[in-house]
Design a protein around this nucleic acid. Structure first.
Lengths: 113, 113
DNA sequence: CGGGATCCGTCTTGATACTG
DNA sequence: CAGTATCAAGACGGATCCCG
C-alpha cells in the first residue's frame, strides 16, 4: 500500500501494518529465524507466495537484509537491520497487551514480556 | 481472520492487525474522535463501508462501545473501553518508531511520543 | 439530514502446484 | 532450498439506497 498521509502511525503501518508482516517480524526478532524454511514452519502456516512478498517488502523498506550464506546451493538468510531491530519495543507492547487481554495465549518465553 | 495460533502477537494481530483498524484506533485514542463523520474526515480517507466494518469488529472485540448520545435523531458515539485504551502503549511505540525511522512524518503533538 | 447498509466492479491477497 | 506462476478468494472504494 502506498503512503497515505504524513502521520507517523499511518506511515509505519504502511510498512509493517499487516498480519503476515508482523508474524515474520516476530519470527525474526523473537525467535531468530533467518531462513525461508524456518518461516514456513511457524504454526500460522504462511504460504510461500506471501512469505516471498513480505520478505521483499521488508527488504525494500530497509528492515531486513538478505544474504547468501553458502557459496554453492543458494541458501539465503534474512537478518534484521538496526532499523528492523528497533521495532522490538513495538512487538513487546503487543505481547504485553495480548497476554493481558486475550484468553489462552501461550507463555511465550522471551525477555521483557 | 480467525485465530491462527496461541501466540499473543498473532492473537492480537487477528484483532487489530490491519491498517484501517489501527487508523481508527489512532483517531479514537489520540484524537478523541467519537463520531462516524469524524473518522471519515481523516486524511487517509477511509470509506464508509470499511469504517462500518471496522467499528463493528472493534465493538465485537470489546475494544469500543457504541452509544447514542442524542435522544431524538440517532447520533452515535464510539468510545474506547478500558481494554481499548490499554492499546495506547502499542500506538505510542509505533509513533516513536515512525518518527525516528521514516522521513517527513509530521510533528504529531501528543503526550509521550 | 445524520448514520449507516448494500451492491458491484476493481484491485489485492492468498493457497497450491510447479521450477531453477 | 528458495522461490515463481497460476488462479481463486477476499478486501476495498464509491455510489446508492435505506431508515428514523
Amino acid at each position: 500500500m502506498k503512503r497515505r498521509s504524513d502521520c507517523p502511525i499511518t506511515c509505519t503501518l504502511d510498512l509493517i501494518g499487516d498480519k503476515w508482516t508482523l508474524v515474520v517480524l516476530r519470527d525474526l526478532l523473537f525467535f531468530s529465524k533467518t531462513k525461508f524454511d524456518e518461516f514456513l514452519e511457524s504454526p500460522e502456516k504462511i504460504s510461500t507466495s506471501v512469505l516471498t512478498d513480505r520478505l521483499h517488502r521488508l527488504e525494500r523498506a530497509g528492515l531486513i537484509e538478505k544474504s547468501q550464506y553458502s557459496t554453492h546451493r543458494l541458501r539465503m538468510s534474512y537478518l534484521p537491520t538496526e532499523k528492523g531491530r528497533a521495532l522490538e519495543p513495538v512487538l513487546n507492547e503487543i505481547v504485553r497487551w495480548g497476554k493481558r487481554n486475550i484468553e489462552n495465549t501461550n507463555v511465550f518465553q522471551r525477555p521483557d514480556t
